[in-house]
């Protein structure tokens, strides 16, 4: 019985640790979630690092206007509406550094609104 209690405690503790992590690490097979905020004219964070073959969810939101979320190389082509959360599921297969841009015109600094996705 004690062993069982220890096991339950360990599981609860593990869950608490996972939920408190900046990038929540889910159980094996469940995608890692990375939160990204878009506002004119930047993405935060502007660099994220992924592992090749690792499924992840990019959870994206806009804090001001509508933005685009586009990477030709990673086959991402989405629109981020303010007030909504967008989940983009990807499993990068190729190592490298990929540029993701806002491709929904959002003002005079739009042309340089971008972030990097590094795949190791």
């Amino acid at each position: 019985m004690k062993d069982r209690n220890r096991l339950v405690f360990a599981l609860v503790l593990a869950c608490a640790v996972m939920l408190s992590a900046p990038f929540s690490t889910q159980a094996q097979g469940t995608p890692r979630i990375i939160e990204i905020t878009a506002k004119r004219f930047e993405f935060t964070p502007n660099v994220i690092t992924l592992k090749r073959g690792e499924p992840v969810i990019l959870r994206v939101k806009s804090t001001d206007v509508t933005h685009g979320f586009f990477s030709k190389q990673l086959k991402i082509d989405e629109v981020i509406e303010p007030g909504k959360t967008l989940d983009v599921k990807i499993t990068p297969q190729t190592a490298g550094s990929f540029t993701l841009i806002c491709d929904h015109f959002c003002g005079s600094g739009h042309g340089n609104m971008k972030m990097s996705i590094v795949v190791e």
Binding site: K72, T99, I101, D103, G111, K114
Partner: peptide
């Protein structure tokens, strides 16, 4: 055409 998509030099 896709001249440089990373610089938004394209039409989807």
């Amino acid at each position: 055409f896709d001249l440089k998509p990373e610089w938004e030099w394209f039409t989807s």
